[in-house]
Simulated assay, not measured.
Amino acid sequence: MQIATLITNPSAPTLDGATVEALRNAWGGGAAQWIAPDLAAEFPLEQPPGNQWEVWAELQARGIDLAVQPAAGRQKAMLIADMDSTMIVQECIDELADMAGVGAHVAEITERAMNGELEFEGALRERVALLRGLEAGIIDRVIAERITFTPGAATLLATMRANGAHAVLVSGGFTAFTGHVAGALGFDEHHANTLLTADGALSGEVAEPILGRAAKLEALRRISAARGITAAQVMAVGDGANDLAMLEAAGAGVAFHAKPAVAARCALRINHGDLTALLYLQGYASGAFVTP
Protein backbone atom coordinates (compact mmCIF):
# COMPACT_ATOMS: atom_id res chain seq x y z
CA MET A 1 0.00 0.00 0.00
CA GLN A 2 1.18 3.50 -0.90
CA ILE A 3 0.27 6.90 0.52
CA ALA A 4 0.02 10.07 -1.56
CA THR A 5 0.54 13.27 0.43
CA LEU A 6 -0.14 16.80 -0.81
CA ILE A 7 1.39 19.70 1.12
CA THR A 8 1.38 23.45 0.58
CA ASN A 9 3.20 26.45 2.00
CA PRO A 10 1.50 27.39 5.29
CA SER A 11 2.36 31.04 4.69
CA ALA A 12 0.60 31.09 1.31
CA PRO A 13 -1.63 27.99 1.03
CA THR A 14 -2.87 26.94 -2.41
CA LEU A 15 -4.24 23.45 -1.69
CA ASP A 16 -8.00 22.91 -1.89
CA GLY A 17 -10.45 20.05 -1.69
CA ALA A 18 -11.14 20.04 -5.42
CA THR A 19 -7.46 19.44 -6.17
CA VAL A 20 -7.22 16.61 -3.67
CA GLU A 21 -10.39 14.91 -4.90
CA ALA A 22 -9.47 15.28 -8.57
CA LEU A 23 -6.13 13.57 -8.00
CA ARG A 24 -7.63 10.89 -5.78
CA ASN A 25 -10.21 10.06 -8.44
CA ALA A 26 -7.67 10.12 -11.27
CA TRP A 27 -5.41 7.70 -9.42
CA GLY A 28 -8.19 5.51 -8.01
CA GLY A 29 -7.17 6.24 -4.44
CA GLY A 30 -9.00 5.54 -1.21
CA ALA A 31 -10.75 8.11 0.94
CA ALA A 32 -8.78 11.33 1.39
CA GLN A 33 -7.99 12.68 4.83
CA TRP A 34 -7.01 16.24 5.70
CA ILE A 35 -4.15 15.93 8.19
CA ALA A 36 -3.92 19.73 8.42
CA PRO A 37 -6.89 21.84 7.30
CA ASP A 38 -6.08 23.64 4.03
CA LEU A 39 -2.39 22.66 4.31
CA ALA A 40 -1.93 18.90 3.93
CA ALA A 41 -4.02 15.93 2.81
CA GLU A 42 -3.34 12.28 2.04
CA PHE A 43 -5.00 9.23 0.53
CA PRO A 44 -4.01 5.57 0.06
CA LEU A 45 -3.09 3.94 -3.25
CA GLU A 46 -2.66 0.32 -4.23
CA GLN A 47 0.54 1.08 -6.17
CA PRO A 48 2.65 4.04 -7.31
CA PRO A 49 1.00 5.84 -10.25
CA GLY A 50 2.81 5.81 -13.58
CA ASN A 51 2.42 9.54 -14.13
CA GLN A 52 3.54 10.63 -10.66
CA TRP A 53 6.26 13.00 -11.82
CA GLU A 54 4.15 14.61 -14.52
CA VAL A 55 1.50 15.37 -11.90
CA TRP A 56 4.20 16.48 -9.47
CA ALA A 57 5.46 19.05 -11.98
CA GLU A 58 1.95 20.39 -12.56
CA LEU A 59 1.34 20.77 -8.83
CA GLN A 60 4.73 22.42 -8.29
CA ALA A 61 3.64 25.21 -10.60
CA ARG A 62 0.68 25.74 -8.26
CA GLY A 63 2.73 25.81 -5.06
CA ILE A 64 1.90 22.27 -3.95
CA ASP A 65 4.32 19.48 -2.99
CA LEU A 66 3.39 15.88 -3.77
CA ALA A 67 4.95 12.73 -2.34
CA VAL A 68 4.13 9.07 -2.89
CA GLN A 69 5.71 6.51 -0.58
CA PRO A 70 5.01 3.15 1.09
CA ALA A 71 2.42 3.47 3.85
CA ALA A 72 4.15 1.03 6.20
CA GLY A 73 6.88 2.36 8.45
CA ARG A 74 6.36 6.03 7.66
CA GLN A 75 6.93 7.23 11.22
CA LYS A 76 10.68 7.24 11.76
CA ALA A 77 12.79 6.49 14.82
CA MET A 78 15.65 8.83 13.94
CA LEU A 79 16.10 12.18 12.23
CA ILE A 80 19.47 13.16 10.77
CA ALA A 81 19.51 16.69 9.43
CA ASP A 82 21.78 19.09 7.61
CA MET A 83 22.05 22.56 9.14
CA ASP A 84 22.79 25.30 6.58
CA SER A 85 19.83 26.14 4.33
CA THR A 86 17.91 23.31 6.02
CA MET A 87 17.51 23.78 9.77
CA ILE A 88 18.58 27.40 9.44
CA VAL A 89 17.86 29.78 6.58
CA GLN A 90 21.45 30.90 6.07
CA GLU A 91 24.80 29.41 5.02
CA CYS A 92 27.03 30.16 8.02
CA ILE A 93 30.27 30.41 6.09
CA ASP A 94 28.70 32.93 3.71
CA GLU A 95 27.68 35.09 6.66
CA LEU A 96 31.21 34.96 8.11
CA ALA A 97 32.65 35.78 4.69
CA ASP A 98 30.37 38.78 4.40
CA MET A 99 31.79 40.06 7.68
CA ALA A 100 35.29 39.53 6.27
CA GLY A 101 34.50 41.46 3.10
CA VAL A 102 34.69 38.44 0.78
CA GLY A 103 31.02 37.51 0.85
CA ALA A 104 30.26 37.44 -2.88
CA HIS A 105 33.31 35.32 -3.72
CA VAL A 106 32.65 32.78 -0.97
CA ALA A 107 28.92 32.61 -1.74
CA GLU A 108 29.73 31.72 -5.36
CA ILE A 109 32.00 28.87 -4.23
CA THR A 110 29.34 27.68 -1.77
CA GLU A 111 26.70 27.61 -4.49
CA ARG A 112 28.90 25.57 -6.81
CA ALA A 113 29.88 23.15 -4.03
CA MET A 114 26.26 22.60 -2.99
CA ASN A 115 25.33 21.96 -6.62
CA GLY A 116 27.99 19.26 -6.77
CA GLU A 117 30.15 21.20 -9.24
CA LEU A 118 33.12 21.31 -6.83
CA GLU A 119 34.60 18.71 -4.49
CA PHE A 120 33.26 19.66 -1.05
CA GLU A 121 36.42 19.26 1.03
CA GLY A 122 38.59 21.33 -1.30
CA ALA A 123 35.92 24.01 -1.62
CA LEU A 124 35.63 24.24 2.18
CA ARG A 125 39.38 24.65 2.63
CA GLU A 126 39.41 27.38 -0.03
CA ARG A 127 36.57 29.28 1.61
CA VAL A 128 37.94 28.97 5.14
CA ALA A 129 41.33 30.28 3.97
CA LEU A 130 39.59 33.50 2.94
CA LEU A 131 38.45 34.01 6.55
CA ARG A 132 41.99 34.19 7.90
CA GLY A 133 42.44 37.02 10.39
CA LEU A 134 38.73 37.46 11.10
CA GLU A 135 38.20 38.05 14.82
CA ALA A 136 36.91 34.82 16.38
CA GLY A 137 34.31 36.77 18.37
CA ILE A 138 32.55 37.58 15.11
CA ILE A 139 31.02 34.09 15.24
CA ASP A 140 28.90 35.03 18.25
CA ARG A 141 27.82 38.21 16.51
CA VAL A 142 26.77 36.29 13.38
CA ILE A 143 24.77 33.86 15.52
CA ALA A 144 23.04 36.68 17.37
CA GLU A 145 22.37 38.98 14.43
CA ARG A 146 22.06 36.83 11.32
CA ILE A 147 21.10 33.23 12.03
CA THR A 148 17.39 32.39 11.85
CA PHE A 149 15.70 29.01 12.15
CA THR A 150 13.75 27.61 9.24
CA PRO A 151 9.98 27.76 9.90
CA GLY A 152 8.74 24.49 11.36
CA ALA A 153 12.16 23.39 12.64
CA ALA A 154 11.35 23.57 16.34
CA THR A 155 7.99 21.81 15.89
CA LEU A 156 9.59 19.05 13.82
CA LEU A 157 12.17 18.36 16.52
CA ALA A 158 9.75 18.60 19.44
CA THR A 159 7.18 16.32 17.82
CA MET A 160 9.60 13.62 16.71
CA ARG A 161 11.44 13.56 20.03
CA ALA A 162 8.15 13.44 21.96
CA ASN A 163 7.39 10.31 19.96
CA GLY A 164 10.69 8.67 20.84
CA ALA A 165 12.87 9.63 17.88
CA HIS A 166 16.59 10.38 18.20
CA ALA A 167 17.64 13.63 16.50
CA VAL A 168 21.09 14.26 15.01
CA LEU A 169 22.40 17.48 13.46
CA VAL A 170 25.26 16.77 11.05
CA SER A 171 26.83 19.61 9.11
CA GLY A 172 29.65 20.42 6.76
CA GLY A 173 29.62 23.75 8.59
CA PHE A 174 31.14 24.47 11.96
CA THR A 175 30.69 23.31 15.55
CA ALA A 176 30.47 26.90 16.78
CA PHE A 177 27.16 27.12 14.93
CA THR A 178 25.85 23.56 15.30
CA GLY A 179 26.23 23.75 19.07
CA HIS A 180 23.95 26.77 19.18
CA VAL A 181 21.42 25.38 16.70
CA ALA A 182 21.31 21.92 18.30
CA GLY A 183 20.78 23.39 21.75
CA ALA A 184 18.09 25.82 20.66
CA LEU A 185 16.11 23.32 18.58
CA GLY A 186 16.54 20.27 20.81
CA PHE A 187 18.79 17.92 18.86
CA ASP A 188 20.22 15.03 20.87
CA GLU A 189 23.68 15.43 19.32
CA HIS A 190 25.54 17.44 16.71
CA HIS A 191 28.57 16.88 14.50
CA ALA A 192 30.41 19.38 12.28
CA ASN A 193 33.80 20.80 11.36
CA THR A 194 35.99 22.85 13.68
CA LEU A 195 37.33 26.27 12.71
CA LEU A 196 40.88 26.71 14.00
CA THR A 197 41.97 29.93 15.71
CA ALA A 198 45.23 31.60 16.66
CA ASP A 199 45.64 34.65 18.90
CA GLY A 200 41.90 35.30 18.99
CA ALA A 201 41.41 35.21 15.22
CA LEU A 202 40.49 32.59 12.64
CA SER A 203 43.66 30.96 11.31
CA GLY A 204 42.18 30.26 7.88
CA GLU A 205 42.26 26.53 8.53
CA VAL A 206 39.73 23.86 9.44
CA ALA A 207 40.52 20.79 11.54
CA GLU A 208 41.05 17.57 9.62
CA PRO A 209 39.49 15.25 8.67
CA ILE A 210 36.73 17.34 7.15
CA LEU A 211 33.16 16.26 7.71
CA GLY A 212 31.72 16.02 4.21
CA ARG A 213 29.48 13.72 2.19
CA ALA A 214 31.12 10.45 3.28
CA ALA A 215 31.21 11.49 6.94
CA LYS A 216 27.50 12.31 6.93
CA LEU A 217 26.73 8.84 5.62
CA GLU A 218 29.07 7.31 8.19
CA ALA A 219 27.30 9.24 10.96
CA LEU A 220 23.92 7.92 9.84
CA ARG A 221 25.18 4.34 9.82
CA ARG A 222 27.16 4.57 13.06
CA ILE A 223 24.55 6.36 15.17
CA SER A 224 21.59 4.33 13.93
CA ALA A 225 23.45 1.04 14.47
CA ALA A 226 24.45 2.06 17.99
CA ARG A 227 20.79 2.66 18.82
CA GLY A 228 19.49 -0.49 17.12
CA ILE A 229 17.75 1.51 14.40
CA THR A 230 17.74 0.32 10.80
CA ALA A 231 18.35 2.65 7.86
CA ALA A 232 14.70 2.15 6.90
CA GLN A 233 13.71 3.77 10.21
CA VAL A 234 15.73 6.93 9.53
CA MET A 235 14.55 10.20 8.00
CA ALA A 236 17.32 12.35 6.53
CA VAL A 237 16.89 15.91 5.30
CA GLY A 238 19.22 18.22 3.42
CA ASP A 239 19.61 20.47 0.41
CA GLY A 240 23.14 20.14 -0.97
CA ALA A 241 25.34 17.69 -2.84
CA ASN A 242 27.20 16.74 0.33
CA ASP A 243 23.87 15.48 1.74
CA LEU A 244 23.15 13.06 -1.11
CA ALA A 245 24.79 9.96 0.36
CA MET A 246 22.81 10.15 3.59
CA LEU A 247 19.60 11.09 1.75
CA GLU A 248 19.91 8.04 -0.48
CA ALA A 249 20.77 5.71 2.43
CA ALA A 250 17.87 6.73 4.68
CA GLY A 251 14.47 5.10 4.59
CA ALA A 252 13.05 8.57 3.92
CA GLY A 253 15.51 10.98 2.31
CA VAL A 254 13.92 14.41 1.94
CA ALA A 255 15.38 16.99 -0.44
CA PHE A 256 14.30 20.20 1.29
CA HIS A 257 14.25 23.29 -0.95
CA ALA A 258 17.23 21.53 -2.49
CA LYS A 259 19.55 22.24 -5.37
CA PRO A 260 18.09 20.78 -8.60
CA ALA A 261 20.83 18.18 -8.96
CA VAL A 262 20.08 16.94 -5.45
CA ALA A 263 16.30 16.95 -5.74
CA ALA A 264 16.49 14.99 -8.99
CA ARG A 265 17.91 12.01 -7.10
CA CYS A 266 15.39 12.01 -4.24
CA ALA A 267 11.87 10.59 -4.29
CA LEU A 268 10.73 12.91 -1.49
CA ARG A 269 11.03 16.60 -2.38
CA ILE A 270 9.72 19.57 -0.42
CA ASN A 271 9.97 22.85 -2.32
CA HIS A 272 6.99 24.77 -0.93
CA GLY A 273 6.22 23.48 2.56
CA ASP A 274 8.20 24.33 5.68
CA LEU A 275 9.84 21.74 7.93
CA THR A 276 6.50 20.61 9.36
CA ALA A 277 6.11 18.94 5.95
CA LEU A 278 8.43 16.23 7.27
CA LEU A 279 5.83 15.47 9.93
CA TYR A 280 3.02 15.22 7.38
CA LEU A 281 5.18 12.83 5.34
CA GLN A 282 5.35 10.61 8.43
CA GLY A 283 1.58 10.67 8.86
CA TYR A 284 1.42 13.09 11.78
CA ALA A 285 -1.72 15.23 11.77
CA SER A 286 -1.30 18.85 12.80
CA GLY A 287 -3.31 18.16 15.95
CA ALA A 288 -0.54 15.82 17.08
CA PHE A 289 2.22 18.41 16.68
CA VAL A 290 4.18 19.32 19.79
CA THR A 291 4.97 23.01 20.17
CA PRO A 292 8.20 23.62 22.10
Score class of each variant (00 low, 15 high):
1 M>H: 10
4 A>K: 01
9 N>H: 14
12 A>H: 13
15 L>T: 05
29 G>N: 04
35 I>F: 07
36 A>V: 03
38 D>V: 03
39 L>R: 10
44 P>K: 03
44 P>Q: 10
49 P>D: 12
50 G>W: 11
54 E>W: 02
57 A>E: 14
60 Q>L: 04
67 A>V: 13
71 A>E: 15
71 A>N: 05
75 Q>L: 14
87 M>H: 00
91 E>I: 01
92 C>Q: 07
95 E>M: 01
96 L>H: 06
97 A>H: 11
102 V>I: 05
104 A>V: 13
105 H>V: 05
109 I>F: 07
113 A>H: 01
114 M>D: 12
118 L>V: 04
120 F>D: 09
125 R>C: 09
130 L>Q: 15
136 A>L: 08
136 A>R: 13
138 I>R: 14
141 R>Y: 09
142 V>I: 01
153 A>C: 00
154 A>F: 00
160 M>F: 06
163 N>R: 08
164 G>N: 10
169 L>H: 04
170 V>N: 11
184 A>Y: 01
193 N>P: 13
200 G>H: 10
202 L>Q: 09
206 V>T: 12
208 E>D: 15
209 P>W: 06
210 I>Y: 12
213 R>K: 06
214 A>M: 05
215 A>H: 07
219 A>S: 09
219 A>K: 12
222 R>S: 13
224 S>N: 11
224 S>P: 14
225 A>E: 14
230 T>C: 05
233 Q>A: 11
238 G>F: 03
239 D>L: 03
239 D>R: 02
245 A>N: 08
248 E>Q: 15
251 G>A: 03
253 G>S: 11
259 K>H: 04
261 A>M: 06
262 V>R: 03
264 A>G: 12
273 G>V: 01
275 L>I: 03
282 Q>T: 06
286 S>T: 05
288 A>F: 08
289 F>Y: 08
292 P>S: 13
